[in-house]
Design a protein around this nucleic acid. Structure first.
Length: 308
DNA sequence: AACAGCAACAACCGCATGGGC
DNA sequence: AGCCCATGCGGTTGTTGCTGT
């Protein structure tokens, strides 16, 4: 026997909300509140809508201070960090991004951020990049942007993967000013997020090892991670960090992080290295370098995540 | 100009959870 | 302790508009 429906489906309107419905709901709630009973609310105000639908409409679109679209890089990083740590718990992630709703973040992740991370750019992003490049350098040599699919950040010379990984994956307090200064993560870490992640069984990013010095054996190296320095100089890549950190999160949480599989070498076998987003592997050294560096930066073999 | 395919977004559905009785 | 109900949550589907051919 199934669950009783929350409302009479036959007499309830479905589909997009009209401006009149929005106005009715909004004005009522602003004046009277929800009354603590969403089920009764639509009848009370004469809306032929399910109470759940009213609640969703209010929470996602009508309540004050809602922001839609225009996600910043910092918001991207927060979403990524929290997703890595706690998985698809959108309401918790949304709680760290004032003005964002769980639905909005979920949609953003599914339609854009995930693709951005793993290389398949949306047309919108491609367009934005195209125009940004044109605007920035008058159509001359392309200046790489953050989310260009796998080609940016490849400046000759040193690159500090540790710092970049920290900057990308560290939970960042969204409203207290950027903790990233000069491409370096600051000392301050949001305690509330740490506690939250810890409570949820994820990694609170509290015990990251310092970046290894080449020639020394890291204190803790997962067996599947190679730490061989690149054969040719120029890349100072603290290899274990992203993989280790993500790996820890997997082991702690045992949450299947769909879409991150390929990052662990257990997903799409056709994934090309140059399709990995710079947000995950920022300078995409792996995109254009030797096999050795591929091994160097990423987990080589599938990891037993205990997620059968 | 018309059409097909795709991406983005809005909304729905059903299960989980927690509180009241 | 167990049931019922409202709410919360996340996955999924439907709709719309844009882009490319």
């Amino acid at each position: 026997m199934g669950r009783a429906p929350c409302c009479d489906k036959a007499s309830v309107k479905k589909g997009p909300w009209s401006p009149e419905e929005d106005a009715t709901l909004k004005s009522y709630i602003e004046q009277n509140g929800t009354g603590g009973n969403w089920i009764a609310l639509p009848q009370k105000i004469g809306l032929k809508r399910c109470g759940k639908s009213c609640r969703l409409r209010w929470l996602n679109y009508l309540r004050p201070n809602i922001r839609h679209g225009g996600f910043s890089e910092e918001e991207d990083r927060i979403i990524l960090s929290l997703y890595i740590s706690i998985g698809s718990r959108w309401s918790i992630i949304a709680a760290q991004l004032p003005g964002r709703t769980d639905n909005d973040i979920k949609n953003y992740w599914n339609t854009r951020l995930k693709k951005k991370l793993f290389g398949k750019q949306s047309r919108k992003d491609q367009r934005q990049q195209h125009f940004a490049r044109q605007g920035a350098n008058g159509g001359q040599k392309e200046e790489v942007s953050r989310d260009a699919a796998g080609t940016n950040g490849l400046a000759a010379g040193a690159y500090n993967w540790h710092q970049h990984a920290m900057a990308m994956a560290m939970p960042v307090r969204p409203m207290s000013g950027s903790m990233v200064e000069g491409n370096r993560i600051g000392e301050e870490v949001d305690e509330s997020i740490r506690k939250l992640l810890f409570k949820l069984g994820g990694s609170p990013f509290m015990s990251l090892p310092p970046p290894p010095v080449y020639g020394e054996t890291p204190s803790f190296v997962p067996p599947s991670v190679h730490t061989t320095p690149p054969s040719e100089g120029g890349i100072q890549c603290s290899s274990i960090l992203p993989a280790l950190e993500l790996d820890e999160s997997f082991h702690f949480n045992q949450i299947k992080l769909d879409g991150l599989d390929c990052f662990f070498g257990m997903g799409d076998q056709n994934m090309r290295w140059n399709e990995v987003s710079p947000l995950v592997c920022p300078n995409n050294t792996v995109a254009s370098s030797s096999q050795g560096i591929q091994q160097y930066c990423l987990v080589e073999e599938p990891v037993d995540l205990g997620m059968q």
